[in-house]
Amino acid sequence: MQQRPIPGTILFDGAQAMKGYALNRMCFSFNDAVNRAAFKADEEAYMQHYALSPGQADAIRRRDVLGLLAAGGNVYYLAKFAGILGLDVQDLGAAQTGLTKAEFKERLLRHQTQPAAAHP
């Protein structure tokens, strides 16, 4: 099965999963409020504990969610990090599509009200 690229997205496949293992493991830890507080108290030590790559750590420092996706981050785990920043999944979708959050929400609403295309 050949995969078609989707503009603005990074395919999360096995290679990306391996590349992002440490990052995703760290972000999963943010399910626990104690870990979120530990991260906020000393981000550098927290990233070192999870052995993030230099590129992943740099993207964390810059709050570059798209860079984290490119560095192997899975959007579902990155949502935990985004939550620490006060962002939600719509903020992430807007960043991926190059839209403002308001424009992204409007696009979602337009898509929701359009009839589904017929499938042969």
Score class of each variant (00 low, 15 high):
28 F>N: 10
18 M>W: 09
47 M>R: 01
46 Y>K: 05
78 L>Q: 02
77 Y>E: 02
86 G>I: 04
73 G>F: 00
70 A>R: 11
28 F>D: 13
29 S>L: 11
36 R>F: 03
84 I>T: 05
86 G>S: 05
73 G>N: 01
53 S>Q: 09
68 L>F: 02
64 D>A: 07
78 L>K: 00
40 K>S: 11
90 Q>P: 02
59 A>G: 02
30 F>N: 01
81 F>T: 01
13 D>N: 13
54 P>C: 08
50 Y>A: 07
36 R>G: 12
86 G>N: 07
66 L>I: 09
52 L>W: 04
38 A>T: 07
60 I>A: 01
42 D>C: 10
77 Y>S: 07
49 H>Y: 03
87 L>Q: 08
63 R>W: 07
91 D>V: 02
89 V>R: 14
17 A>G: 08
51 A>W: 01
89 V>P: 03
13 D>Y: 12
59 A>L: 04
74 N>R: 15
89 V>A: 15
73 G>A: 13
69 L>C: 04
80 K>S: 14
86 G>W: 01
40 K>V: 14
29 S>A: 15
62 R>H: 10
13 D>A: 12
30 F>Q: 05
90 Q>Y: 13
44 E>W: 09
72 G>L: 00
49 H>Q: 13
91 D>L: 08
76 Y>D: 10
63 R>H: 11
46 Y>T: 04
89 V>F: 15
20 G>L: 00
91 D>F: 06
46 Y>A: 11
84 I>R: 01
66 L>R: 10
89 V>Y: 15
62 R>I: 06
22 A>V: 06
